[in-house]
Simulated assay, not measured.
Amino acid sequence: MDNLGTLGTTEEQIELMDVATNFCRDKSPIEKVRKLIDDDLGYDPDIWKEIGELGWLAIAIPEAQEGVGLSMAEVVPIAEQMGRNLMNTPFAATTLAAQALLAGGNEQQQAAWLPKIAAGAAATLALQEDNGDWDRNNIAATGTVSGDIVTLAGKKQFVIWAQSAELIIASIKVEGAVQFALIERSAIDDAALRRESVIDETVRSYELDLDGLTISTAALFDAARTRETIDRIDLAGGLIHAAEMTGGTQAVIDYTIEYLKTRKQFDKIIGSFQALKHPTVDNYVEYEKSRTHLYSAAHCFNDQGRGEVAVHMAASQAHGSYSHAADRGIQFHGAFGFTHDCDAQLYRRHAIFKGALIGDAAYHRSKLAGLLFD
Rank of each mutant, 00 (worst) to 15 (best):
D211L: 08
G120P: 02
A100L: 08
A123Q: 00
A191K: 15
A111D: 12
D211W: 10
I169D: 01
A98P: 03
K173F: 04
G176A: 09
E107H: 11
L125E: 01
L102P: 04
A98N: 06
G104M: 11
D130R: 04
R195Q: 15
I117L: 05
R204T: 04
A181Q: 07
I199G: 05
W134L: 03
Q108A: 15
A97H: 09
Q157S: 09
Q179M: 15
I188P: 05
Q179A: 12
T202M: 07
A118H: 13
I160L: 09
A111Y: 08
I172L: 12
T142H: 04
L193S: 13
W161Y: 08
A92Y: 04
V198R: 14
E175I: 14
A181C: 15
D148S: 15
L125M: 13
L125F: 12
I199M: 07
S205F: 06
L127T: 02
A162N: 05
Q128G: 01
D209Y: 12
N138Q: 10
N106R: 11
Q157Y: 02
V174Y: 06
T144V: 12
L208G: 01
A93D: 07
L193P: 13
K155T: 00
D200S: 05
S171N: 12
S197P: 14
G104H: 11
S146G: 02
Q157D: 03
E175L: 14
I160G: 09
T94R: 03
Q99E: 13
T95H: 01
G147V: 11
T94K: 05
E129M: 01
A98K: 05
D133Y: 10
L208V: 11
Q128A: 01
S205I: 06
A100Q: 03
T94D: 02
R204V: 10
L102H: 11
A103E: 08
I168E: 02
I168N: 01
A141F: 00
K116I: 05
F91D: 03
I149F: 04
L193F: 14
A112Q: 15
I117Y: 00
D148F: 15
I139S: 03
D190H: 13
D189K: 08
E129S: 06
N106F: 12
A177G: 06
A112N: 08
I160T: 12
I172D: 03
D133N: 14
A119T: 09
N138W: 03
E201H: 13
W161G: 00
V198S: 06
N137A: 01
D209G: 13
L101E: 04
G104R: 07
E175F: 14
A170M: 03
A111M: 13
A187W: 11
A118E: 07
P115W: 01
A141W: 01
A121H: 07
G154Q: 07
D190I: 14
A100G: 10
L96Q: 05
A141N: 03
I160E: 10
A112E: 14
G154T: 14
V198E: 06
A170K: 00
A177C: 10
